[in-house]
């Protein structure tokens, strides 16, 4: 499957949040303001791409050759936790301004099902190395797209008259549902 196809698939058709339901916690939690949404999206894209690389390597260089498939879950989550820790320390050293922008969101990403979900999905789909990296990057962009769109809408919602019980998570989910509906229109785009 062509790389461009995978890219479009992961950003639009199989959008991580609106199709695979991954990353809902940060999606709901960090989408109140546009700039934090953008920062979170970028942080996630960054970590996702790296995770795609590392999880592919672990899967194909260590687990599969040694028939250790059942250790996938444990090894992935440990690697992701350490990866996020390392990435945070690395960014802090290399680029303090970048850390200022992204830093606080990084620890939140560990238990973000989106990252673990990416590692598992990539392993499931069994793509080759380059395709996996594109998949990781594309999924991150898709997540960013969804969260930024959501933030834009929510900032407007602040001014609207939302019924009391629906304020916060309730209306956010309904909006997400309408977005998901819109994104369903992207299915079948791929030849």
């Amino acid at each position: 499957m062509e790389l461009l196809t995978i890219l479009i698939l992961s950003i639009l058709v199989n959008n991580f949040v609106l199709y695979y339901f991954l990353g809902i916690c940060p999606f709901l939690g960090v989408s109140k303001k546009l700039d934090s949404a953008v920062s979170m999206g970028l942080a996630v894209t960054f970590v996702m791409t790296i995770t795609a690389v590392v999880s592919w390597l672990i899967n194909h260089l260590i687990l599969i050759p040694n028939d250790l498939g059942y250790l996938q879950i444990v090894s992935f989550i440990l690697v992701i936790a350490s990866l996020v820790q390392l990435v945070e320390m690395f960014i802090r050293k290399i680029s303090p301004p970048l850390y200022q922008a992204l830093g606080i969101y990084l620890p939140l990403i560990t238990t973000n099902c989106a990252i673990m979900g990416l590692a598992l999905l990539a392993a499931l789909k069994n793509y080759n190395f380059i395709t996996t990296v594109v998949f990781g990057f594309g999924s991150g962009i898709g997540f960013t797209l969804a969260i930024v769109l959501m933030a834009g809408i929510r900032e407007q919602l602040e001014l609207a008259d939302v019924p009391e019980p629906l304020k916060g998570a309730g209306i956010a989910l309904i909006v997400a549902g309408i977005m998901a509906l819109a994104f369903t229109g992207f299915s079948g785009m791929i030849q």
Partner: peptide, 18 residues
């Protein structure tokens, strides 16, 4: 479809809070 999941949960959450 995913849309239905989001909307239903949103409404249920609203109901619970209500």
């Amino acid at each position: 479809l995913p849309a239905g999941a989001f909307i239903t949960l949103g409404i249920l959450l609203g109901l619970a809070l209500f």
